[in-house]
Structure formats: structure tokens, C-alpha cells
Simulated scan of single mutants.
Amino acid sequence: MQITRKRPDTRQGPAENFTGTVWLDELAAPEPPSRIRMFSVHFTPGAHTAWHTHPHGQVLHVTEGEGLVQRKGGAVETIRTGDTVWIEPGEWHWHGAGPRTFMTHLAVVEAAEDGTTADWHGHVDPANYPS
């Protein structure tokens, strides 16, 4: 058993992967052979990810606020505190805060053999983000 009492500093999500202001807190990145990674992600109103996929899928659990999630070709879905979303491996999607609300979620992924946790595919067209 290992108890982690000191975590990396909160960092801002990079502009190439996020629209708006997003803050990332790494909660868990155990030593190999584990490949689990867990983050608490804090989105300001209107902030969201770019389109992306995960090699082994992703679990999102909303801990605060209201947000949006969309898979490629699907409808934009509202997610709220207490909701859990399973994103299939390789499924193109984006997620983030609603246009007028903050949203925080836990994001859990399993890294691929090479350490990759996400493949990024470009920003969401602003004309397709709900206002």
C-alpha cells in the first residue's frame, strides 16, 4: 500500500488540447505495472476539450457543476453532478463545461503500452458548441 500526500502542482490545460481555461490536478499515476491515470479536471464556463480518443477508453465522473459531452456523430449531451460517462476505446469525443457553468470531473484512463493516454484530433468548431 502507498499513501500519496504530495501531488504535482495544479497546471493549466494546454491551448492545443483545450478551448478556454481548464485546470488539471493529477490525482493518481501509480508506478508500473499499473497504467491507471486519474485527474480532477476543472473547466471554467465554456471551456472544453478538443476532439480526442483514448486507447483503452475513459471514465468521467462529474463531481461539481454541469457540463457537456459529445461523441462524433452524436448529440451533445448534458452531464451533471453525480453522472458517470463511459467513453469507448478509440471513440472520438469532447467534453467540458456548459456555456454558462463551471464543471469539474474526475477522469480515469489506462495508458497504452507506450504511455499514451489520449490522441488529440483538433478543436471543436465554435459554431457547433452550444451557446
Rank of each mutant, 00 (worst) to 15 (best):
A47N: 12
W51L: 00
I36V: 14
F18D: 00
G98H: 08
R71K: 11
I3L: 15
W51Y: 00
G57T: 03
H56C: 05
A107H: 08
V22E: 01
R5M: 14
T10S: 09
D119V: 04
E64F: 11
N17A: 11
Q70S: 08
A50H: 11
E26F: 03
E31R: 14
R80W: 05
L106Q: 10
E77Y: 07
T49N: 07
G96V: 09
G122Y: 03
T117L: 01
L24Y: 10
G57K: 06
E91Y: 03
A97T: 02
T21W: 00
H56R: 09
D83T: 11
G65Y: 11
L68Y: 13
T63H: 06
R5T: 15
V22P: 00
I3C: 14
R35W: 09
T116A: 07
E91M: 07
F102S: 12
G67C: 12
D119W: 00
W23S: 08
R5E: 15
D83M: 13
E64G: 05
T21E: 05
A112H: 01
L68N: 09
V76I: 13
T81C: 14
E31K: 14
G67M: 12
P99I: 12
W92E: 04
D9Y: 07
K72V: 00
P32L: 14
A28I: 13
H95S: 13
D9E: 14
W94I: 01
R100H: 10
T116F: 04
D114S: 05
R100E: 11
A29Y: 07
E77L: 14
R37T: 04
T21H: 02
I3Q: 15
Q2Y: 15
P8V: 13
A118N: 09
E77R: 12
R5V: 15
I3F: 14
T81F: 09
I36C: 04
L27Q: 15
I3E: 15
E88F: 02
D25E: 15
P14K: 00
F39G: 01
M1I: 15
H52R: 08
R37K: 09
E66Q: 11
V62Q: 12
V41P: 03
D83A: 13
W86N: 06
W120Q: 00
N17Y: 10
T21S: 01
T104V: 10
G74Q: 14
G122H: 06
Q2W: 12
V62C: 13
G90M: 04
F18Q: 00
V76T: 14
W120C: 00
D25P: 07
I87N: 03
F43P: 07
H42N: 09
F43V: 05
F39R: 03
E64C: 06
V108F: 10
G122W: 06
V108E: 05
E77S: 12
T116E: 09
V124L: 05
E16T: 12
A50M: 01
T53W: 04
H52M: 09
G46Y: 07
D25A: 10
H61W: 06
P89M: 10
L68K: 08
A50C: 06
P32Y: 10
G90A: 09
G115L: 02
R37L: 04
A50G: 02
M103N: 05
R35D: 10
T116H: 04
G13I: 02
T81S: 14
T53P: 07
F102N: 12
W86H: 12
L68F: 13
T44P: 08
V62L: 08
A15Y: 00
L24R: 14
H56A: 04
V59N: 06
S34C: 09
H61Q: 10
F102G: 10
P30M: 05
